[in-house]
Amino acid sequence: MNTSRHQDSLNDAFTKNFISFAVGLIINCINGMFVYTYFKSKVFQQDPRYVLYIHLVINDMIMLTVSVMLQILTYTIPIMFGPCCFLLLIIITTNNPLNLASMAVERYIAVCQPLRHSQVCTVQRTYALIALIWAVSFIPAITDVIIILTTQPLSVFSSKVLCYPSYMNLNSPPQVLLFSFVFLTLIITYLKVLCAARAVAASNRASAKNAHNTILLHGVQLLLCMLSYISPFINLILVTAWPRDSTKIFFSTFLFTNVLPRLLSPLIYGVRDRTFIPSLRSEITFLKIFKRGRLK
């Protein structure tokens, strides 16, 4: 991002902010329906797979909300550097790939070690794992805060800034280690499940194939997750090549690296899942009937 975005006319700025807000709201509403369906059914709440899934969806909703809010703020008013750091820390913490690794490992155990799955993957252990994920997620955020405290005077926190992600060090060593660990986990679990799909009996082959397809899609999610971190470098390269289109480039990269990828989570599990999507449809139908009854 860059201050050149203020070269936009009032109509262009309004259009871009409206698109970001509208798309973000639609995606959050879709994700919100999955969250609502999850909490309406005890069956999903007792399955570690869906517990991890809904945690990922809620993370996406938080990150999307804060990202769109920052996008709008950069076009409107500057904020204090302290609150700006807090909002950026939320984005860093929620944009954590460890949940993808956990979901991939859970699918690996379900396919390759089905007899141990109910013992290893319990709901209590899943909640403990989520707590560990959040604890580890704070490491890159804390690292960025320490870097700022050691390189900038304390007075910078009371100054007003246009809140760009470039104010934070979004490529610290802990984040590189996290992405490397998740990448290796996805590769290993994918290959293990792929081998299992060929070895298991025909009755379980469909389940194994679905599992390795899911892990492959997690790889796509990881790539999109990484794009949100390297978007400043993408912007730099594209703006250098096409300086006159800088504001369009900033907006396009934000839309494709921060907003639209948040729609991928419900598509990977919710829409493809044979258990979740019927429950979602029944809940939507119930809400429609309930609404019509109240209107009458």
Rank of each mutant, 00 (worst) to 15 (best):
residue 1 M to S: 11
residue 1 M to A: 09
residue 2 N to L: 08
residue 4 S to N: 07
residue 9 S to K: 08
residue 10 L to Y: 07
residue 12 D to K: 13
residue 13 A to Q: 14
residue 15 T to F: 11
residue 23 V to E: 13
residue 25 L to F: 13
residue 26 I to C: 12
residue 27 I to H: 08
residue 32 G to Q: 10
residue 36 Y to V: 14
residue 37 T to Y: 06
residue 37 T to W: 02
residue 38 Y to W: 06
residue 40 K to T: 11
residue 41 S to H: 12
residue 41 S to Y: 07
residue 43 V to Y: 13
residue 56 L to T: 09
residue 56 L to M: 13
residue 56 L to D: 11
residue 57 V to A: 12
residue 58 I to P: 11
residue 66 V to I: 15
residue 74 T to M: 10
residue 77 I to R: 15
residue 78 P to Y: 05
residue 79 I to N: 00
residue 87 L to F: 12
residue 94 T to C: 01
residue 102 S to Q: 05
residue 104 A to D: 06
residue 109 I to P: 06
residue 113 Q to N: 08
residue 114 P to E: 05
residue 115 L to S: 14
residue 117 H to T: 03
residue 122 T to A: 01
residue 123 V to W: 00
residue 128 A to E: 00
residue 133 I to G: 00
residue 134 W to A: 00
residue 140 P to D: 01
residue 143 T to G: 00
residue 146 I to E: 00
residue 148 I to A: 05
residue 148 I to Q: 03
residue 153 P to K: 04
residue 157 F to Y: 11
residue 159 S to R: 08
residue 159 S to Q: 14
residue 162 L to N: 08
residue 162 L to D: 10
residue 163 C to L: 01
residue 163 C to Y: 00
residue 165 P to V: 01
residue 167 Y to I: 11
residue 168 M to Y: 04
residue 172 S to E: 09
residue 173 P to F: 04
residue 177 L to R: 02
residue 181 F to K: 02
residue 182 V to D: 01
residue 184 L to Y: 03
residue 185 T to F: 01
residue 186 L to W: 05
residue 188 I to A: 07
residue 193 V to Q: 10
residue 193 V to N: 06
residue 194 L to T: 11
residue 195 C to D: 15
residue 198 R to E: 15
residue 198 R to D: 13
residue 200 V to C: 15
residue 201 A to T: 11
residue 204 N to P: 09
residue 211 A to L: 09
residue 215 I to Q: 07
residue 215 I to A: 09
residue 217 L to G: 05
residue 224 L to D: 08
residue 227 L to F: 11
residue 228 S to D: 04
residue 230 I to K: 02
residue 234 I to N: 03
residue 235 N to K: 09
residue 238 L to I: 03
residue 243 P to G: 06
residue 253 T to W: 01
residue 256 F to S: 05
residue 256 F to Y: 03
residue 258 N to Q: 14
residue 258 N to L: 04
residue 260 L to Q: 03
residue 260 L to S: 02
residue 263 L to Y: 03
residue 265 S to R: 09
residue 266 P to R: 05
residue 266 P to I: 13
residue 267 L to V: 13
residue 284 I to D: 10
residue 287 L to A: 13
residue 288 K to T: 00
residue 293 G to I: 13
residue 296 K to P: 08
